[in-house]
């Protein structure tokens, strides 16, 4: 949720992962986790669930502000560059127009504004999502693979100020989780035996 996750030493608990049977149960569990005051946590679903951001208590994204700033910067650099070239660097009279012929500069100003906004949107989105992330500790959980198929998960990370292994797991159970597991922050590769136990379609 915005702030960078501290790197944990291998073997320590990364966080608690809970699986829920239906979107509705996950939705209410999110409300419970939110109301318990947790801040470093996330929900994982195979498809978007309407209103989940409210149940999780997420604030509106700050991305539009990034886009506004980069778009304005693009537009300002567009008109600035053309104005500088036409009045200071290479002042040329073109079809009898003044040096600073702003109407002629508008198309490029507009295009650079769009370009700046597009860069801001894509790069800002990647930055807010902390992407690219090549590996995530939750991938250690076999069950978690179903987050892209038919599983509904909540993960609460151990650096949350309210995190306590015992009490957090209890809370998730009380909120209706089918299974709760503590995931280690180990960065070691999966053991060779793991591959055989994974369900393959």
């Amino acid at each position: 949720m915005g702030l960078l996750r501290p790197s944990l030493p291998p073997g320590e608990v990364f966080g608690a992962l809970a699986e829920f049977a239906t979107p509705a149960e996950l939705y209410h569990a999110c409300e419970g986790v939110r109301d318990a005051g947790y801040t470093r946590w996330d929900a994982h679903t195979p498809f978007p669930i309407h209103g989940l951001e409210r149940a999780m208590g997420l604030r509106a994204s700050r991305l539009p502000w990034v886009v506004l700033v980069t778009a304005v910067l693009g537009a300002v650099s567009g008109i600035g560059l053309q104005g500088w070239v036409s009045t200071i660097a290479y002042p040329l009279v073109i079809s009898g127009k003044p040096f600073f012929s702003w109407p002629a500069f508008i198309p490029i100003t507009f295009e650079l504004g769009v370009l700046g906004g597009a860069f801001g949107a894509v790069l800002g989105m990647l930055a807010f999502n902390q992407l690219p992330t090549l590996h995530h500790p939750l991938f250690a959980s076999q069950r978690f693979e179903r987050a892209s198929d038919d599983g509904f998960f909540i993960s609460i990370e151990s650096w949350d100020p309210r995190f306590d292994a015992g009490r957090t797991v209890d809370l998730l159970r009380r909120l209706g989780a089918q299974e709760v597991e503590l995931v280690a922050s180990s960065s070691e590769p999966a053991k060779p035996g793991d591959a055989t136990t994974r369900a393959t379609p």
Binding site: P23, A24, Y27, F47, P48, I49, H50, G51, L52, R54
Partner: peptide
């Protein structure tokens, strides 16, 4: 299918 995906509170 909004009926399936929607959470109860948005009904």
């Amino acid at each position: 299918d909004p009926g399936h995906h929607s959470a109860p509170s948005s009904a």
